[in-house]
Amino acid sequence: MISMRQLIPALLVLATPAVAQDFSEGSHAKSWNLYAEQPALFQAQVVDVLCELTGDCPENCGGGDRQLGLVRAADDVLVLPNKNSQAAFNGAVAELLPFCGAEVEVDGLLIDDPDLGAVNIYQVQLIRKVGDAEWTKADSWTKVWAEKNPEAAGKGPWYRRDPRVKAAIAKDGYFGLGLETDKDIKELLFE
């Protein structure tokens, strides 16, 4: 049985030439000066990607452990948000999880670089439920990390203090090739 949610985008897709749509109208996304960025404001449903694709669907979209996606209302395309708005090496799951299953409006940057395979990749900067007036900034990841890692409290960015990252570097070095090799590489590069 085809639902209206599926039928309306289907008809839109069939009526539209096979070119990338422009979702920049009304966007207030900040540029990151990326080669293939495009501002994009759109409505979507927040989904658990693994659930969407395979039918493996735990409660609450996996509780923050799984990648979350955005099924765009305009064309039913599954957009993958790789990044939140923080310049701190963190993804978008913590930002989207409070909206699991909800219809939302997001503002951010689409990355469209087919030569690299980057299609429907997204950096989410702002999010709100459809109908809400207030936007939520997509910058909560570091706060969530701090709550999960109280033993790592201290100065400096999270990635210098993260216990798992520190353990990996302590074991295999910054270049991942073992501590002896790491020492040799650093001598080569920095001395």
Binding site: F89, N90, Y159, R164
Partner: peptide, 13 residues
């Protein structure tokens, strides 16, 4: 490699 660790731990796909 170190950046890959950061991004993986940071939840980037």
């Amino acid at each position: 490699h170190t950046c890959a660790l950061w991004c993986s731990a940071g939840g980037i796909p």
